[in-house]
Amino acid sequence: MIDMSPNIVLVVTIGVLFAAGVYLLLERSLSRVLIGVILIGNGANLLFLVAGGAAGRPPIVGDEPERQMSDPLPQAMVLTAIVITLGMTAFLLALAYRSWQLHRHDEVQDDVEDRRIAHLAAVDERAFADLDTEVAAGTLDEEAAEARDETDQGAPGTVREVRP
């Protein structure tokens, strides 16, 4: 029977990584979200090491007694996962940079169309207007440039204005 009792240090580390990662994921700034993703990803990678059982000798057939080898399969999986996380991290970094290029900040914005519908619901309007009703002017892009998030102080067209 293989010894499958997990290493307590690893388990605690995984818990801390996940907790910190989830906290950061809930932030608005994309760079913090990115760090959160990295932390959670590393937590998952460590979890694989726990899943592989106790540490042992290098798994090279012929060099080491087979009973003392560590399980190579989870390590192969972790390597794959690390490479994938690396690629995704690079892509997210590029996104954050592009967002900064366009808006001078990397905060994830709300969906403007979604806000518009919520606005209509709040004032109890119909979702679509007929020919004789006035439609708010401006394209989505224009509104997107104005609308940000709760750190704004009452940008035009936000839902907050509607609420009593």
Binding site: L25, V33, D111
Partner: peptide, 24 residues
Amino acid sequence: TGERIRAGTIYIVVALLSSVLFLV
């Protein structure tokens, strides 16, 4: 474009989270 980066960010972060869940 600005609108696609906004949409893409949401899509990517959610997809990454589901991938990590799958990995776990």
